[in-house]
């Protein structure tokens, strides 16, 4: 009895240490964002703001084009999500249900594309975007992000469509409905949870992408959040307060989203891994 109480305590101490290590960088980010300028350069650094200073937040939104970065990221990430999910809902259904040759080849192709390193295609894509006048545009990024998220999205949705019982479609078929009609009116509504999960994963991937955003959109007015924040640093002194404030604004909604949809995200991420 005594022994198990001690092992219990050790267990909880271990868990607390793990959580502390995970959370600490966020704690540091948040207190840095509220530190008044003179306190940012304290040696040794102080672990709590002497007063809650909002100047860094105001500066991030007014003196820096952070609002523009946010707008760009929202446009690019939501459009990508809409396109990728739209396109792969059709593809996923066809791959899960319809009979035609080459289905496995298409799935294998998508899987291998998901392994492509971005750097392996960035040079020709840059030239293509240049030829098509799509550098420094939303469309160039949306097109690229849609493509790189299609494999993940297609696999997830194909797996999900397969879990929907086939009886419903057979019943519709007996009623004389075409496969397309069955898909739109019967299957899609049932697949809504899977589509939603896929949409979250695609959105996060598009929101966080860096390499293509960095190389395609070099004008400040068209930069996305990850690039904007990486480029925030001024020439000589780093504006840590402003960077931290901007980061908090980006990170908080993501944290809330992750906490709300935790189970969906985990099931979406692990579906492929566990089934092999």
């Amino acid at each position: 009895m005594h022994k198990s109480r001690w092992s219990n305590i050790i267990f909880y101490v271990g868990v607390v240490i793990f959580i502390a290590i995970i959370v600490f960088p966020f704690y540091w980010l948040i207190i840095t964002s509220f530190k008044p300028p003179e306190q940012l350069w304290d040696i040794p650094p102080t672990w709590w703001p002497s007063r809650f200073y909002l100047g860094s937040y105001i500066a991030a939104f007014t003196e820096r084009p952070f609002l523009t970065y946010l707008k760009n990221s929202i446009i690019v990430a939501t459009s990508t999500t809409a396109f990728a999910v739209f396109v792969t809902s059709f593809a996923g259904y066809a791959l899960a249900r319809l009979h035609f040759k080459g289905k496995n080849a298409i799935l294998a192709l998508a899987l291998s594309v998901s392994m492509f390193p971005g750097i392996a295609i960035v040079s020709p894509l840059f030239l293509m975007m240049k030829e098509w006048n799509l550098l420094n545009s939303y469309i160039g990024l949306i097109l690229t992000y849609t493509t790189i998220t299609i494999p993940l999205s297609m696999w997830n949705l194909t797996t999900f469509f397969r879990t929907i019982p086939a009886d419903l479609e057979e019943a519709a078929k007996v009623d004389g409905a075409s496969p397309f009609y069955t898909f739109i009116r019967i299957i899609l509504p049932l697949a809504a949870p899977g589509i939603f999960t896929t949409a979250i994963l695609v959105f996060i991937a598009a929101w966080n992408e860096f390499l293509f955003a960095l190389t395609f959109n070099t004008e400040d007015a068209l930069r996305t959040v990850p690039v904007g924040i990486a480029m925030f640093p001024g020439q000589y002194t780093l504006p840590w307060g402003d960077i931290s404030a901007a980061s908090v604004v980006v990170v908080l909604p993501l944290i809330i989203m992750v906490l709300l949809f935790q189970q969906r995200i985990v099931s979406g991420l692990t579906a492929g891994a566990v089934k092999g």
Binding site: F90, A91, H99, L109, P124, P151, P179
Partner: peptide
Amino acid sequence: ENILGYLMVAPALLCILLIAIYPVFRTFSL
């Protein structure tokens, strides 16, 4: 049914071919 299948897969497949597969070959030729 098989034509419908190809039609439904076509947009996703076209994106992959144009924005991922073709560039790999072009990287090599560059």
